[in-house]
Amino acid sequence: KDKDLLKGLDQEQANEVIAVLQMHNIEANKIDSGKLGYSITVAEPDFTAAVYWIK
């Protein structure tokens, strides 16, 4: 199951987060929520590491 990592990002921010996570071998998903911006989700086992790397 995926957990929400970040919400309300613009496309550039979302792409930067995806890139950082991929560099650390964390699979992440970018979801277009329309006017609400983009959300990033990661698998539950990767959540703690993902939070660490996006600081």
Results as ranks from 00 to 15, higher is better:
Q22Y: 08
E44I: 06
L36A: 11
I40Y: 00
D10Y: 05
G34W: 04
K7V: 12
V51W: 13
L9A: 02
L9H: 01
K7F: 11
N15C: 12
N29Y: 11
K1E: 08
L21Y: 00
E27Q: 14
V20A: 07
H24C: 10
I31S: 04
E12W: 12
D4W: 15
A28R: 01
G34N: 03
N29L: 10
L21T: 02
I26F: 01
S39M: 11
L6G: 02
K55G: 11
I54R: 01
Y38M: 04
D46H: 07
Q11Y: 12
G34S: 03
V51L: 13
Q22G: 07
K3G: 04
A19M: 10
D4N: 12
D4Y: 15
I26Y: 03
V51E: 12
I18P: 00
W53M: 04
Q11W: 13
Y52W: 07
I31E: 04
G8T: 04
D32P: 08
N29G: 05
I18L: 10
I40Q: 00
L21R: 00
H24S: 01
D10G: 08
G37A: 03
A43N: 08
K3C: 15
G8A: 05
L21G: 01
V42T: 01
K1S: 08
L6A: 06
E27L: 13
G34V: 04
A14E: 01
L5V: 09
E16G: 08
I31P: 02
A43H: 08
Y52A: 07
D10H: 06
K1M: 10
T41D: 03
G8I: 03
I54C: 05
S39F: 11
I54Q: 02
K7S: 12
L21N: 02
Y52F: 10
G37K: 06
N25F: 08
L36K: 09
S39D: 08
E27S: 14
L21C: 03
D46W: 10
N25I: 05
E27T: 13
A28C: 10
E44D: 07
G8Y: 09
D32C: 14
I26L: 03
K3F: 08
E27K: 15
Q22P: 00
V17E: 00
S39T: 15
N25P: 01
K1T: 10
G8E: 05
W53R: 01
V42W: 03
V17P: 00
V17W: 12
I40L: 03
V51P: 00
K1N: 10
A14Y: 03
D10K: 08
K55T: 14
K55E: 13
I26G: 01
S39E: 05
E16S: 11
D2Y: 15
I31L: 06
N29Q: 12
L5Q: 02
S39P: 00
K35W: 09
Y38I: 10
K35T: 11
G37T: 07
Y52S: 06
T48E: 14
H24R: 05
T48G: 10
V51F: 08
Y38E: 00
G34L: 04
V17T: 05
A49E: 11
D4A: 14
A49V: 06
K7Q: 11
Y52C: 13
A50W: 04
Y38S: 01
S33P: 01
H24E: 02
I54Y: 05
V20E: 06
A49I: 08
V51D: 09
S33V: 11
K7H: 14
G34F: 05
N15M: 08
I31A: 04
H24G: 04
A43R: 11
Y52K: 09
K1D: 08
D10Q: 05
E44T: 07
E12G: 08
K1R: 12
D32V: 06
D4R: 14
V20H: 15
N25H: 10
I31K: 07
M23N: 08
I40H: 00
A28K: 00
I54T: 05
L36G: 12
E27Y: 13
E12Y: 09
I31W: 09
L21K: 00
D46S: 04
Q11L: 15
Y38G: 00
N29I: 12
D4F: 15
G37Y: 05
A28F: 10
S33E: 15
V42I: 08
S39H: 06
S33D: 14
K30M: 14
A43D: 05
K3P: 05
V20F: 15
D10P: 05
K30A: 12
I54W: 07
K30T: 07
L36H: 12
L21W: 01
V51Q: 13
K55A: 12
V42Y: 02
K7G: 10
M23V: 07
A28I: 05
Q13R: 11
K35C: 13
G34D: 04
N15T: 06
D10S: 15
A28D: 02
D32M: 10
A14K: 01
I40T: 00
E27R: 14
L5C: 07
I31Y: 07
T48S: 12
G37S: 05
Q13F: 07
N15S: 06
E12P: 05
Q22S: 10
L6K: 03
V42C: 05
D2Q: 15
K30F: 08
D2G: 11
P45L: 13
T41M: 10
A14M: 04
D46Q: 06
I54P: 03
Q13V: 07
S39I: 13
I26S: 01
D4C: 15
N25V: 03
I40N: 00
T41I: 08
I40M: 00
A19S: 08
Q13A: 11
F47G: 02
Y38P: 00
L9T: 02
T48C: 15
D46I: 06
S39Q: 06
L36N: 13
V17R: 00
Q13D: 04
K55Y: 11
K7T: 13
D10I: 05
Q11D: 12
A19L: 11
I54K: 00
M23E: 09
E44N: 05
K35N: 11
A14D: 02
N15L: 09
I26E: 01
Q22A: 14
E27F: 13
G34A: 04
T41R: 10
L6V: 09
K3Q: 07
I18Y: 05
D46V: 07
L36S: 11
A49S: 10
D32T: 06
I26R: 00
P45I: 14
Q22F: 11
G34R: 03
D2S: 13
E12A: 11
G8W: 07
A49T: 08
K1I: 11
K7A: 09
D10V: 04
Y52E: 12
Y38K: 00
G37M: 06
V42R: 00
K30D: 01
Y52M: 12
G34P: 04
D46K: 05
A50I: 05
E12F: 11
I54M: 05
D46P: 01
E16R: 14
V17G: 00
A14T: 02
N29A: 08
M23P: 02
A28L: 03
L5Y: 03
D2C: 14
K1P: 09
T48N: 13
N15R: 07
A14R: 02
V20G: 03
Y52T: 05
W53D: 00
Q11G: 10
L5R: 02
S33W: 15
A43I: 03
K35A: 13
A50C: 05
Q13W: 07
V51S: 10
S33I: 08
H24N: 05
A49W: 10
D46E: 05
A19D: 04
E12T: 10
I40C: 03
I54F: 04
A28V: 05
Q13L: 08
F47D: 00
V20Q: 07
E16C: 15
I18R: 02
A50Y: 03
G8D: 04
L5H: 01
K55R: 09
E16N: 12
L21S: 00
T41P: 00
T48H: 13
N29D: 07
I18Q: 03
Y52R: 10
E44L: 10
V51H: 08
L5T: 01
V20P: 00
Y52H: 12
S33G: 15
N15I: 07
